[in-house]
C-alpha cells in the first residue's frame, strides 16, 4: 500500500553503497538484530536499483526520526519518495531551510553533522508542517508496512490462520 512507484532513474549508486554499507555494518554489529532480520529484508538490500533518488539530507533526516539501525535504507527511501511525489514543494523547501540552518550553525550539510547536532536541528522544527509530514509518511511507511512487521515481532493478520487459539495466545512461560 505504501510502496512507491517512484522513478528508479537517476540512481546514485555510490551514495546508496555508502549508506547501505553503513547500515549493513550496523546490522552485522548486532547479533540479535541479524537473527531477527527476515531473509526478504536482506534480499532488498541486495537490489540497490530499487533505491529511489532523494534530495540530499532527506534520507538522513528520515533515519533520524525513526532510527532503526537494523532497517535498510530502502524502507525509509520508499515512503520518502512517495511523499516527494505528493508534497514535493513542501519537502524541498523544508529541506532547504534545514540545510540552511545546518550551514549557518555548523558550516556543513545536515547529513554531514554528528547525530546530536542533527537531532537538535530537527527538534527545532518538529512542530512545523515539513517535519510533521515526513514523520507521518515514515510512521505509516515503517510501522504499517507488512513486510517489516516480523522485524518488530508483530504477526499481523491472523484470522485466515485460525487466530491464535491454537497458536500461542497463552504460551507465556516465564512468569
Amino acid at each position: 500500500m505504501h510502496d512507491s512507484s517512484a522513478p528508479g532513474a537517476g540512481l546514485s549508486r555510490r551514495r546508496f553503497m555508502s549508506l547501505s554499507a553503513q547500515s549493513l555494518a550496523l546490522l552485522g554489529a548486532s547479533a540479535v538484530a541479524s537473527q531477527l532480520i527476515p531473509v526478504t529484508l536482506l534480499a532488498d538490500e541486495a537490489r540497490p536499483e530499487a533505491l529511489p533518488e532523494l534530495p540530499a539530507g532527506l534520507l538522513r533526516m528520515g533515519r533520524d526520526i525513526f532510527p532503526h539501525d537494523r532497517l535498510g535504507d530502502l524502507h525509509y527511501a520508499k515512503p520518502l519518495a512517495a511523499l516527494l511525489d505528493k508534497q514535493g514543494a513542501l519537502v524541498r523547501e523544508g529541506l532547504k531551510a534545514l540545510q540552511g540552518s545546518a550551514r549557518e550553525r555548523h558550516g556543513q550539510a545536515f547529513e554531514a553533522l554528528a547525530e546530536n547536532d542533527r537531532v537538535a536541528l530537527l527538534r527545532a522544527i518538529e512542530t512545523g508542517p515539513f517535519f510533521r509530514e515526513v514523520r507521518s509518511a515514515l510512521m505509516f511507511g515503517i510501522y504499517d508496512n507488512k513486510a517489516l512487521f516480523p522485524l518488530f515481532g508483530y504477526e499481523g493478520s491472523s484470522v485466515e490462520k485460525g487466530g491464535y487459539v491454537n497458536r500461542g495466545f497463552n504460551d507465556i512461560d516465564w512468569l
Binding site: 526520526i65 532510527p67 512542530t127 510512521m139 515503517i142 518488530f152 508483530y154
Partner: peptide, 30 residues
C-alpha cells in the same frame, strides 16, 4: 494494540520520534 496503532499512539505529541521512540518500538513484542 497492533504495531501500526502502537506507533500512532505511543507518543502522538510532536516529540514522539527519535532514539527513545524507536527503541521502544523495537521492544513492541515485549
Amino acid at each position: 494494540l497492533g504495531l501500526p496503532f502502537m506507533s500512532a499512539f505511543l507518543d502522538p505529541t510532536p516529540q514522539g520520534w527519535g532514539r527513545t521512540f524507536a527503541s521502544r518500538m523495537e521492544r513492541y513484542d515485549h
